[in-house]
Simulated assay, not measured.
Amino acid sequence: MSNRPFNLNADLLLRAYRLGLFPMAESRRGRALHWLDPEARGVLPLNDFHIPRSLMKTLRSGRFEVTANVDFSATIAGCAAARLNRPETWINAEIERLFTELFELGFAHSIETWENGRLVGGLYGASLGGAFFGESMFSTATDASKVALVHLVARLRLSGFVLLDTQFITAHLARFGAVEVPRANYHARLAEAVDVPARFVAAPDAIRLAREIETLRRLG
């Protein structure tokens, strides 16, 4: 189903997510939004997350500084930007506007990866109860988006989230343990998750965060 955006706001967007729908545009310049509810949904189990050994070395090296909710606008802009290997994206101006509104209301979050003070990767998504809907990620430095994903999962676990929706499965996500579940299964999980009283913690205690990442390593 598609429609031109008309009086679409954050409240309506959250209602759509509660029903299992999410929006995508045909292109960066396109105005119409398509509402999707795929037969198979990508889910990244928070209790069965795999960190590749080489990535764990990067995490421990201190090469990147990682923050959350520090520069949401730059993160979503990075996700929307064209790249050599991805000349077109599905994030148009309307999606940027809606998610910025969600962010200002506390229902959207970003993870930023920095190298030498420069934003080199990150991701963003929406949250509703104990469900987090991962939207997009970007990277201009090796492993930058992967590091952001690890930090997202660690924060979600520390914050009491129970569902991480990835929408679709990619080879990149499959390496971390993402799986596809049937639509009915996803809707059942979603109905339970949105009633969980989770609260996204952007800046958890550094020691707790480091311990959680080590726990993730052992899970994988």
Rank of each mutant, 00 (worst) to 15 (best):
P38R: 08
R217C: 04
R60G: 01
G20W: 01
R175V: 00
D205Y: 15
E104H: 01
W35I: 07
V43Y: 12
D48Y: 15
S110R: 08
W114F: 12
L209N: 01
S2M: 15
R157W: 07
E94V: 14
L21Y: 10
F138R: 09
R175F: 02
F64W: 13
D48R: 15
G78N: 11
I95H: 08
G122L: 09
W114A: 05
N85S: 13
V43H: 08
R155S: 00
H172R: 00
G117L: 11
A108F: 01
A141T: 14
N185G: 09
S27A: 15
L105Y: 00
L123N: 03
P182T: 09
T100L: 10
G42Y: 03
D48I: 09
S27H: 15
E39C: 09
R155H: 02
F22K: 03
K146L: 08
L158T: 05
N9Y: 06
R28Q: 15
S73C: 06
K57S: 04
F72Y: 03
N9E: 15
R155F: 03
A188D: 10
R31E: 12
A202H: 14
A77R: 04
A193R: 00
A68V: 06
L36R: 13
N116D: 11
T67N: 08
A171D: 15
A198S: 04
R29E: 08
L190A: 07
R28H: 15
R183F: 01
A154M: 10
E192Q: 11
R199W: 13
R63E: 05
D71L: 14
D71H: 15
G122D: 10
T113C: 00
N3G: 13
H34G: 11
K57F: 03
V150K: 09
T140L: 08
A40L: 14
A171C: 12
S127L: 08
L55C: 06
L14S: 04
V70E: 12
L84F: 00
R217S: 04
G122H: 13
V147I: 13
M56G: 06
Y186V: 05
P204K: 12
A174D: 10
I95K: 11
A81Y: 05
M137D: 04
E135M: 06
F72L: 03
N9T: 14
N185I: 06
E65P: 01
W114I: 08
L98T: 14
S2N: 08
A131S: 14
W90V: 12
G134N: 02
S127R: 04
Y186E: 05
